[in-house]
Amino acid sequence: MTSEKTISLGIYPEVTLAQTRGKRDDARALVAGNADPSHHRKDAKAKARLEALNTFEAVASEWHALHTKSKSERNPVLITNNKGRLSRPLFYQA
């Protein structure tokens, strides 16, 4: 015999009753379609994390970290200037 699975829909003051009922209805729709709501939630979080890692800023920072290791002994000022050039105009958020 398996135990009943439960899922948290939020903490009361932060999530209104109407929002909780909407989340409940969404979870019930997933169960009706033979999907596990907790796995659906985990997949959505993993997808959001992956999308956050695929931003230009994250890729540029990773590239900069990899390419500055060998060049930092030769010209540390150039490395600092390049990091500044990368971050100013490209990562601005309005």
Rank of each mutant, 00 (worst) to 15 (best):
P76F: 04
A58H: 14
F56M: 12
T68A: 09
D36G: 05
L50P: 04
N81Y: 08
S70C: 05
N75I: 01
K5T: 13
H40R: 06
K83E: 12
H64S: 00
G22F: 04
L50V: 10
T6E: 11
E73T: 12
S70Q: 12
S72A: 12
A29P: 00
S72D: 08
A27S: 03
V59P: 09
R41M: 01
A60K: 02
A52L: 11
T16M: 05
W63H: 04
V31A: 07
A48S: 09
R21N: 05
I79A: 04
K45M: 10
E57F: 10
T6G: 11
G10M: 02
A60N: 03
S61T: 10
L30S: 00
I7L: 14
S72M: 11
R49N: 12
R28P: 00
A65W: 03
D36W: 03
R49S: 11
L78S: 10
A60T: 04
A52E: 13
D43Q: 14
Q19Y: 05
L78A: 14
G10Y: 03
E57V: 08
L17G: 06
S38Q: 14
N34Q: 08
K45Q: 13
R74T: 11
L17Q: 10
A58C: 08
K83R: 15
A60I: 02
R21L: 06
V59H: 09
G10A: 03
T2M: 11
A29W: 01
F56V: 09
T2F: 13
F56Q: 11
